[in-house]
Design a protein around this nucleic acid. Structure first.
Lengths: 219, 219
DNA sequence: AAATAATTTTAGACAAATCTAAAAAATATT
DNA sequence: AATATTTTTTAGATTTGTCTAAAATTATTT
């Protein structure tokens, strides 16, 4: 089965939201994809008729087996291209997401499997996210959000949410890379800000929102 | 200016036909793009309104300065990706055209210029076609169609029309590659067939249609 | 549990890209 | 030059993906 670019974007969006909550609802997908709720409903019908979705009117939806398989293919393509853009073309962290977003829709399996091999079968993309292998298996991840990291506990950055160039820009500013050591020194309930120590830099403050989008290995 | 995938395909098609005849007509573009004449007319209006086209109703059309510039960008992307697919991923001649056809629509200039550099600024794609540089300049070509090659004259394959996997398959069968020595021994008016000597192989017959789509260096 | 608020779906419209069939214009033929 | 043929354009319909506004449903609050 081949899917349109639009269909693929919805599938990917649903997959992403499923990681947070079992069932996904219309509005959250609408806000993720920056589209109207009505458009979501329209597409849900289509994806349901294509048997990718478990969907009950007014009661949320989720990808079925087949839908998840398809999502993992798209994610594999996206992350392999991100890896390519950084490791072979030397592009900056902030720029790769949008380009990979376009490249991911080229769906030749042979192309992607050969690219994978050419890149040396990487298991993590430049943001630290796991890359599904050609059978759709994700390497195991043991990571937690920085905001959930125990105080004073030494950890290392495992990945960062790859959705926004603006976040990338800020992380560069903090000197945060995959593997960078980090420790949470103090947590402020007022706004969720954290005082953190990044590598050997002086202590710094980081916002709650940023902390939510940064992940560390959980040993 | 950004163009839709569809617009880009029309631009590319017009550019290709312009190489044969000054002005392009509706039906020939329709047959190249395998679409209806009505669709061509619709798109001509659009491209004209976007100022890429010199178009007079009922009297053919051609790309203007701006249109040619755009066409060269698309061709550059296509050919660089073809080069990548063969030289880095080791894909077969026959398969690369269709994949490059999809990749070419990803239009980030930085991506393409970096890809170019990564590939070592190649000047010819795997079919032997010249790759425009980042300023849209095509390396000079001095090639003629095999069907126009003088009898008994030693030549080398410079390029082959890249439109069809079926042609690629047949050329592989003949042992024809870029750079392969070739000589026309005899020409048959009956159907335009040629008796040729390819490299050190025994003499072989090749159809007129194939000969039209094979090019050699014209010294 | 009734009223209010929030969420989701439907109805109907629109733009892009395509199509078929008919009309218009250009070209070729007798 | 009049007629026939070919080519091109127009008119109107269709599909995909989107939208807004209104209606339906579910959730929350008093």
């Amino acid at each position: 089965m081949k899917f349109s670019e639009s269909e693929e974007n919805y599938i990917k969006g649903i997959y992403a939201l499923q990681q947070k909550s079992k069932r996904v609802n219309t509005n959250s997908l609408a806000s993720l994809l920056e589209t109207s709720a009505a458009s979501i409903t329209d597409m849900l019908k289509k994806l349901k008729s294509k048997k990718l979705l478990d969907y009950k009117k007014y009661h949320g939806f989720r990808l079925n087996e087949e839908g998840n398989r398809e999502a993992l293919k798209i994610i594999r393509r996206h992350r392999l291209w991100e890896y390519f853009l950084v490791s072979k073309l030397g592009m900056d962290w902030e720029k790769i997401h949008d380009i990979a977003e376009e490249l991911e829709h080229v769906s030749s399996k042979e192309l992607i499997d050969r690219l994978d091999q050419f890149l040396g079968n990487p298991t993590r993309d430049p943001h630290g996210d796991p890359i599904p292998n050609e059978f759709g298996i994700m390497p195991e991840v043991n990571q937690i959000s920085l905001k959930d990291l125990q105080l004073k506990r030494s950890a290392r950055i495992s990945s960062v949410s790859d959705q926004s160039p603006e976040l990338m820009e800020m992380l560069n500013n903090y000197g945060i890379r995959i593997g960078t050591p980090i420790k949470v020194l103090q947590s402020f309930d007022f706004d969720g800000s954290l005082k953190v120590k990044i590598a050997r830099q002086p202590d710094q403050m980081i916002s709650g929102l940023a902390a939510e989008n940064i992940f560390v290995y959980d040993y």
